[in-house]
Design a protein around this nucleic acid. Structure first.
Lengths: 219, 219
DNA sequence: GCCGACGGTGAGCGAGCGCTTAGCGTAGCC
DNA sequence: GGCTACGCTAAGCGCTCGCTCACCGTCGGC
């Protein structure tokens, strides 16, 4: 919860780093289209149309349709890694850092679901060299989570038999949020983040957290 | 693990119900192609080629490419539901039935990964009416798992605050196996199934299993 | 031996794809 | 005002897509 400005509500639009304004509009349009229909089912005409431009305008700012996906995937993975690093390297016990990592990672997957969907599910649409770059980032993501769990095992806070397998399961659980989360559904990203942090603490054998009196308690 | 014949090793090929032999070959080819590259990136020429036929042969057995996906999705969801029903309606405590359900469901997602990938991730490529049919099956899948968890809560075996949310998380965890499982990776489907059954029992607050003597046994 | 049914092929249709190119309007500098 | 640089468009190229159609070989019934 240290990363308050990164929650969903009044979040900073994460595409401000994409500098010519027209290029950013095209990229945002591509994120929406890719998330909605998938990379291969999205046409360059659709992307340009959503950005209010003619089909040819896309090629002034991006060499190919795949370069668009690559930029999106790269920026998205940087963001995801940043979120986990902030939590993993914060102060506090392994328990607190794991809960923080899971809840903020889940909040991102739920609140920025369109981006997360593209980032997590359109990986094999990239060419070999671009995919290799992204896979390297994903290994760093895995390492951050594994690091927290190893800390917790070393300090005796966690009880985990298979650290690598549990790391995989924790990340898997968080990532799949991007598949099923519904913006118009009954749960807010914050609620899902809190629920998942609790479930993950149970998975690693940490003592359950029920600290607050009168805690919200999802019905 | 009552469903011994359904494990991965010498499993029954689940497409025997697809009756003209050529139609089955086409369908199996389509499953492989869809799993590898996604529905939209797969061409009818590729499917027919994998089945050793000319592109036109596909249309003798299926009206459209989408009908192929529909048949695959329908049969796959029937199978997944059958696996969960067998576990959910078996004898034994809620603890045993939940462990059985998770481990067999996970074994299916890992061992029949190509099928599971198509079934779980190509849902929105279906048209509205076909998708509605499949969504109804998915609601039944959800109900089976929720039923076991409710039983466990009622009997005091489980400690769960948010039954619907936990059900969602359990299914989410199992389904995502189809995304990351690698046939050439270090884990067998059976190992992942056992690991995940243990993790899920922890998630619902059931006493850990620890069959081996000399196990650490926290609390 | 002839015939119809059936499962298959080769060629190709209209459409839509990713992407290119020639040219245009405008803003900024002199 | 004259000129260049730049962002953008209209038109369209070459290609591949899902799908169709005219035709063909084989095989069981008579």
């Amino acid at each position: 919860m240290s990363t308050a400005e990164e929650t969903t509500g009044g979040e900073v639009e994460p595409w401000e780093e994409v500098t010519p304004d027209a290029a950013r509009r095209l990229l945002v349009a591509a994120v929406e289209a890719f998330a909605e229909r998938g990379y291969h089912a999205t046409t360059t005409r659709d992307i340009a149309g959503r950005a209010g431009m003619s089909p040819a305008a896309l090629y002034i700012h991006y060499k190919t349709k795949e370069e668009l996906l690559h930029r999106i995937s790269r920026i998205g993975h940087d963001r995801a890694l940043d979120i986990l690093r902030t939590a993993a390297r914060g102060e506090g016990s392994a328990r607190e850092r794991l809960a923080d990592a899971v809840s903020s990672f889940v909040r991102w997957h739920a609140g920025r679901r369109t981006t997360a969907r593209v980032v997590q599910y359109e990986l094999d649409a990239l060419g070999p060299e671009a995919r290799a770059e992204i896979v390297a980032l994903r290994r760093q993501v895995d390492a951050e989570v594994r690091g927290i769990i190893e800390d917790g095992v070393a300090s005796g806070e966690f009880d985990v038999l298979d650290v690598k397998g549990t790391t995989l399961a924790v990340l898997s659980l968080c990532i799949d949020v991007a598949r099923w989360f519904d913006v118009n559904g009954p749960r807010t990203p914050e609620e899902v983040g809190a629920l998942y942090a609790d479930l993950v603490l149970r998975m690693v054998g940490a003592e359950p957290a029920r600290p607050q009196d009168g805690a919200p308690a999802y019905r």
